[in-house]
Simulated scan of single mutants.
Amino acid sequence: MNRTMITATNTLGQLQHKMDIIGHNISNIQTNGYKRKESYFNDLLVQEFKNQKQENETGRLTPLGIRQGTGARISQSQLINSQGSIKSTGRNLDNALEKEDLYFRVRVSDDKGEDTRFTRDGAFHLNPVSNNPEQMMLVTGKGYPVLDENDNPIIIDGSIKNLTFSKEGQLTAEADNGNRQIFNLGIISVKKPQLLEQIGENLLGLPANFDQLGIKEEDILTSLTGGLREGISLNQGALESSNVDLSKEMTDLMNAQRQYQFNAKSVTMADQMLGLINGIR
């Protein structure tokens, strides 16, 4: 196969992956608390041909020999953890985290069992507990239980009159009979967001093999309990918007499409050149 074809095809698949990432960002522009991803390219290994007989050439500005590239690949797909804009909703179950390193803890059940995940989407709801309709559980919009600081689901007894979330993430539930229940929301501070995996449904989680990588959970995140809760900044009656900038994403998408077209054209031109060579008699 022509060397030009090899170089172009190596890059085409990576450009398609970049466009998929951009498309995913654009599709989540209205998702509360969504964090966009950005990909970065690096050159693959370069092959050098030493065809120079003389090592010193007067006036030469470029390195000796011929260097041929083999394409490019995505070297990093980075989670951009910048703060999205805060929009007021006036709904007392909506909560926005006002620091970019903070995440709510939620519990997810799947075929593999139960696990703890993290989200910035603070649009909460109250669902009746299946075995006790007089109790209400605080859940996310997808129905996942919101956890307290001890990793227990937040279950409220009795008929609820009012719910109040403090700036430090403390939930006070007032019943019709005047009784009050207090819960501390399970909130973490993420030190290394790039080590978290996007699980889907606007959730992040620890990598399955992080212990094999020689990394401890406390190196990635910190549970804000006790005196650390002073670092929490919660805004009740508001939600955080996605941090996706549509104009930037469209510009990046057009650039990626042009690069894809250029590499596809290189394959076509290389095929035409091979056709001309094969046609020589």
Results as ranks from 00 to 15, higher is better:
M1C: 10
M1P: 13
T4K: 07
T4L: 11
L12E: 08
Q14R: 10
L15Q: 13
H17M: 13
K18Y: 09
M19K: 04
I21Y: 11
I22K: 09
I26A: 05
S27T: 09
N28I: 02
N28V: 01
Q30D: 15
D43F: 12
L44F: 04
L45K: 11
L45C: 04
L45A: 10
N51G: 14
K53E: 15
E55A: 14
E57Q: 14
T58P: 10
G59L: 02
P63V: 01
L64F: 09
R67H: 15
G71H: 07
I74K: 08
S77A: 11
I80P: 01
I80D: 01
S82V: 03
S82Y: 10
Q83W: 08
Q83E: 13
G84H: 05
K87Q: 12
R91M: 12
D94S: 08
A96V: 01
L97Y: 09
E98L: 11
E100G: 10
D101Y: 09
L102I: 05
F104D: 01
F104T: 04
D111Y: 14
E114P: 01
T116W: 10
R117I: 02
F118N: 00
F118T: 00
F118W: 03
G122M: 00
G122D: 08
A123D: 10
A123G: 05
A123W: 02
L126D: 11
V129C: 03
V129A: 06
N132W: 13
E134L: 11
M137P: 00
M137K: 08
T140N: 07
G143H: 05
P145D: 00
V146E: 08
L147Q: 07
L147S: 01
D148S: 00
N152V: 11
N152K: 15
I154C: 02
I155W: 06
D157S: 14
D157K: 10
G158P: 08
S159P: 09
I160T: 00
N162W: 04
N162A: 05
N162Q: 12
N162L: 05
N162E: 12
L163Y: 09
L163S: 02
S166Y: 12
K167E: 12
K167P: 02
E168T: 12
E168R: 13
G169P: 05
G169S: 07
A175H: 14
N177T: 02
Q181V: 00
N184T: 06
L185E: 09
I187Y: 09
I187R: 00
I188W: 11
S189M: 05
V190C: 00
K191D: 10
K191T: 06
Q194S: 11
L196A: 03
E197F: 04
I199E: 15
E201I: 02
L203K: 05
L204V: 00
G205D: 11
N209W: 08
F210S: 01
E217T: 07
E218K: 10
I220S: 01
L221F: 14
G231I: 04
N235C: 07
N235D: 11
G237R: 03
S242H: 01
L246I: 13
E249A: 06
M250R: 08
T251N: 13
T251V: 11
L253Q: 03
L253D: 01
M254C: 03
M254D: 06
Q257C: 06
N263W: 07
A264C: 03
A264L: 07
K265W: 03
V267K: 06
T268D: 06
M269D: 14
G275T: 09
G275M: 06
R281A: 00
